[in-house]
């Protein structure tokens, strides 16, 4: 039975039905999940697939959000054009940062990317003329063809398809030449090099991809939150993304969505324990990394569902 086309049809149906059936609150949450998942997807590529730890995802998201907003506020570039432009520039920065991995790995890479996040946050706070300083800045509305998308219900039509597109691309990338090269590098850099892979270029490309995805996510989350606060884009945010990736499943693009859904929806069910929320997230991260380092997407029944999908799409015997 052709399961995959059926599932696609169901997904498209659900996509158009959701705005008709769900109230604004849930659509906003879906947008938040999608935007967060996109940022985490970057981490899945660079840390999950290529094995290079990165605490710079927070910086990329900040640069994407601020970059697109500043372009729109100061030069009148609409967000739909500004976000891709900024994302390409940030991807270039990510590529440069990736060059660092020639000399740096493991602990030192974690430290260096941590420092990048700290530097970007400080720059956002102190470059007041451009960023509004510690007070933050308002995000111009996302306008398409003269129509401003302001609510979660309207932004839904932008954020969810973009995220779905990148998740599918990443899913297909895993089995491609690029994806297999990254996996080889994660498992043994020396062996990958011996096989003739240009290890540095692949690692830098992985960083560029993570920066690109982070910047797009930042650009899309900015009009959703309507306000950028530099205090948000610190080391805690970088660890938040890492926690989502670990809980969802470090090597799985769908894991990024599952993890984001857990972290965005959980606060709704813990309203009585608002002040313990940070502790719950931290304990989740610690528990998963010790007990189930491959995350939720490695749960047996989820794996079986995934295998079922692949079996139906694989070559027929």
């Amino acid at each position: 039975m052709p399961l995959r086309p059926l599932l696609f049809a169901a997904a498209i149906l659900a996509f158009f039905a959701a705005p008709q059936l769900l109230p604004e609150f849930y659509l906003f949450q879906i947008c938040l999940i999608a935007g967060t998942a996109l940022a985490v997807l970057g981490l899945v590529v660079v840390t999950g697939l290529a094995g290079q730890i990165s605490l710079a995802q927070s910086a990329f998201v900040a640069l994407g959000g601020y970059g697109a907003s500043i372009l729109a506020a100061s030069w009148g570039v609409p967000l739909w054009a500004g976000i891709p432009v900024v994302a390409v520039v940030v991807a270039g920065l990510g590529f440069l940062l990736g060059q660092m991995t020639l000399r740096v790995a493991g602990h030192y890479l974690a430290l260096a990317t941590l420092a990048v996040t700290a530097i970007v946050q400080l720059a956002l706070i102190h470059w007041e003329a451009l960023t509004g300083g510690a007070a933050g800045m308002a995000v111009p509305p996302f306008e398409i063809m003269g129509r401003a998308l302001t609510s979660g219900r309207e932004l839904y039509y932008v954020i969810v398809p973009v995220t779905a597109l990148f998740i599918l691309t990443a899913q297909n990338l895993i089995a491609s030449r690029f994806g297999r090269a990254l996996t080889a590098i994660r498992q043994s850099e020396t062996a990958a090099e011996a096989m003739g892979l240009d290890v540095l270029r692949y690692k830098a490309a992985a960083f560029a991809a993570s920066a690109f995805l982070g910047a797009v996510a930042g650009g899309l989350l900015a009009p959703l939150s309507t306000y950028l606060d530099p205090a948000q884009y610190g080391i805690t945010y970088a660890i938040y993304f890492l926690a989502i990736a670990v809980v969802g499943g470090m090597t799985s693009p769908t894991g990024a969505v599952i993890g984001s859904a857990v972290f965005v929806l959980l606060p709704n069910y813990l309203q009585a324990f608002q002040s313990y929320l940070g502790l719950v997230f931290a304990l989740l991260l610690l528990g998963f990394i010790v007990l189930r380092p491959n995350g939720l997407s490695s749960l047996p029944w989820l794996r079986q569902a995934g295998a079922l999908l692949h079996r139906t799409t694989g070559p027929k015997p």
Partner: peptide
């Protein structure tokens, strides 16, 4: 475990302590 898991675990430990204090 891999170095990556150790790094994340130590980050997580710090976050747990920080959030414990905050809570």
């Amino acid at each position: 475990a891999s170095l990556l898991a150790k790094i994340i675990a130590s980050l997580a430990l710090g976050t747990v302590l920080r959030e414990f204090v905050r809570a």
